[in-house]
């Protein structure tokens, strides 16, 4: 069986959940090989987790020389690994960086690329959700080694246990790849709430909050949910951009999405329309968001949410 390369997404050796999802997908297509780009100590920390979730091999690419440069060196390292292993596919987490690595890799190795898959099955045949979630598309790469970027939450991690054989791989990085420099980097502060694109429940607020996100946060905490926002709320400076949901923010697909004081513009829908259950609280009964909902309350979020939160907390006992 051919190897399937999975580029590991990690912060200081802490492997993110979407990578474990990719390992589960890789198993459907061949033998999962994790590609870990980072330091030796970090690799050691990540190894156990990658092995537990099915990595048969772990290629460790030391990043001492390339740390501090944007994207291009990682694409070069992957290119060399593809040449060495002739994999059945390369899987990368869909994010800014993942998609850019994938794009460069596609040109380098002359292979087709599919981005933002929400499912990958044998073939590999991918499923994507397009036009703000209005269409579902299945597609296949027809040339070279399929390169597929996969959205978080597209598979369930499986603790299947792999061999986890570690192999050092020394990539040769060109000077040309070291031209866009990361001058400074400030890791995002943990909010204490679930991460937006991993959360089972998302409670979001828009212009209708008037800048007061307390009712949103209160409900989110009662439900163990992540907090999200519309672009109007972000543009107003009420909440940082990394909370934005929609076309130019994050795409989420949780079990439950509760939109509060959000009208439901097409660009917002693009980021939440595939949620399983959708609830909205909006004082305008004509708001387009109500076309999407399973349940809606026409009312003022500043009174409805605190009261609902209180009842939820009571029910939880």
């Amino acid at each position: 069986m051919s190897e399937v390369l999975v580029l590991v997404d990690h912060v200081d050796g802490e492997v993110k959940k979407p990578t474990l999802e990719l390992l589960a997908i890789a198993k459907r297509l061949g033998e999962p090989s994790a590609v870990f780009i980072g330091g030796a100590e970090e690799a050691a920390a990540a190894g156990a987790r990658l092995t537990a979730f099915g990595a048969e091999k772990i290629y460790v690419v030391d990043d001492a020389e390339i740390r501090g440069y944007l994207v291009a060196p990682k694409a070069e390292a992957l290119q060399q690994l593809v040449e060495k292993t002739s994999p059945a596919a390369v899987l990368i987490v869909s994010g800014f960086e993942g998609k850019e690595i994938a794009g460069r890799l596609a040109i380098k190795i002359g292979s087709g690329l599919i981005t933002d898959a929400v499912d990958v099955q044998e073939g590999p045949v991918t499923t994507q959700s397009v036009f703000a979630g209005n269409f579902t598309v299945t597609a296949k790469v027809t040339k070279g080694t399929p390169i597929i970027t996969v959205k978080p939450n597209s598979a369930t991690p499986e603790e299947s246990g792999g061999a986890g054989t570690v192999e050092e791989f020394s990539a040769t990085i060109s000077e040309g790849a070291k031209t866009a420099q990361i001058v400074a980097s400030q890791p995002r502060q943990a909010s204490g709430r679930p991460e937006l694109n991993e959360a089972a429940i998302v409670v979001s607020g828009g212009r209708g909050t008037g800048g007061n996100f307390e009712p949103i946060e209160g409900l989110a905490d009662a439900l163990g949910a992540a907090v999200g926002a519309s672009r109007a709320a972000v543009d107003s400076g009420w909440i940082p951009h990394n909370f934005q949901i929609g076309q130019t923010g994050k795409t989420v697909s949780p079990q439950l999405y509760i939109a509060n004081g959000i009208s439901g513009a097409i660009q917002h829908r693009a980021g939440m329309q595939t949620s399983k259950t959708i609830v909205a609280v909006n004082k305008d009964e004509e708001a387009p968001i109500f076309e999407l909902v399973d349940f809606g309350v026409v009312g003022d979020l500043h009174t409805v949410l605190p009261a609902a939160t209180e009842q939820i907390n009571k029910r939880k006992g």
Binding site: N134, K140, V298
Partner: peptide
């Protein structure tokens, strides 16, 4: 280098309770 095999319109969401 990639090929769309099939496109399906998402079924309209059934009207919820408001």
């Amino acid at each position: 280098w990639s090929e769309v095999q099939d496109t399906t319109a998402r079924p309209p969401r059934t009207a919820g309770e408001i």
